[in-house]
């Protein structure tokens, strides 16, 4: 119970801090919107938009979500000064801290991905037939990205580098999840999911579970100085 309270308290604190600085979330939102507009514009002038394949829709969508998640999670670590980290270190244990970070980042990237999906529907049309699968794959995908990049961003931020290091470190590891999530997400374009939907769902869940477990085990080593 104390464990859950700690996580909840930290997530609430993060949100309070986010809303206190007006431009923090707005800048992420702008990042998403301008990237989508960029995609829309480049497709428009190639005259590709008219016959934009649903698969292309899904790939663009998940790539943009990937970049957004990397940015959001890296920011959540780089904004912490070393003195604030020391403060958290005395208050929370590593597992509480990493779980709270993951949940906070997952909520932020889930909201951002829903917004970008709406924007995609507005500018590129709506191929989505099955809303249940759409939200399921969206939730699993953003949670998986958040878990992976919370750990990777912690490493990148601790090494004192910029966000590009978390891209270098994280993208090769994100490829498996991306592949499966795009497959899963593509099922929401059909009314009836294909026969290997369950199989892909389990694989996607495994790619959430494995990095989660690894982060819980390994995070204590990287946040101690």
């Amino acid at each position: 119970m104390k464990f859950l309270n700690g996580i909840l308290a930290y997530v609430l604190l993060e949100f309070k801090l986010e809303f206190r600085s007006k431009f923090a979330l707005a800048s992420l939102l702008m990042y998403v919107l301008s990237t989508i507009y960029l995609v829309y514009f480049s497709l428009e002038y190639q005259a590709l938009k008219a016959d934009l394949l649903p698969a292309l829709w899904a790939v663009f969508f998940w790539l943009i979500t990937l970049f957004t998640t990397v940015n959001a999670t890296f920011r959540s670590f780089s904004k912490e000064g070393s003195s604030r980290m020391l403060f958290y270190y005395t208050l929370l244990d590593a597992k509480t801290f990493v779980l709270a970070k993951i949940f906070f980042n997952a909520i932020v990237s889930w909201v951002l991905s829903v917004v970008s999906a709406l924007m995609f529907i507005v500018v590129l049309g709506n191929p989505i037939q099955n809303l249940g699968i759409f939200f399921l794959s969206l939730s699993i995908g953003t949670l998986g990205y958040s878990i992976l990049f919370t750990y990777i961003s912690a490493i990148a931020a601790r090494s004192g580098a910029n966000a590009s290091l978390s891209v270098i470190l994280g993208f090769p590891l994100a490829i498996p999840l991306l592949t499966i999530i795009v497959k899963l997400f593509g099922e929401s374009f059909k009314t009836i999911p294909s026969s290997n939907f369950d199989n892909n769902l389990w694989i996607a869940l495994a790619f959430n579970f494995i990095p989660m477990l690894l982060s819980l085990v390994l995070f204590p080593y990287i946040w101690r100085d």
């Binding site: 490493i155 590891l173 490829i175 592949t179 499966i180 690894l214 390994l218």
Partner: peptide, 21 residues
């Protein structure tokens, strides 16, 4: 320390990937 923790994370993720893909 950081390189070791990345190495462990990456190796296990890579193994999972090789089994699944």
């Amino acid at each position: 320390k950081i390189a070791a923790s990345y190495n462990i994370f990456a190796f296990i993720m890579y193994l999972a990937f090789i089994f699944v893909i």
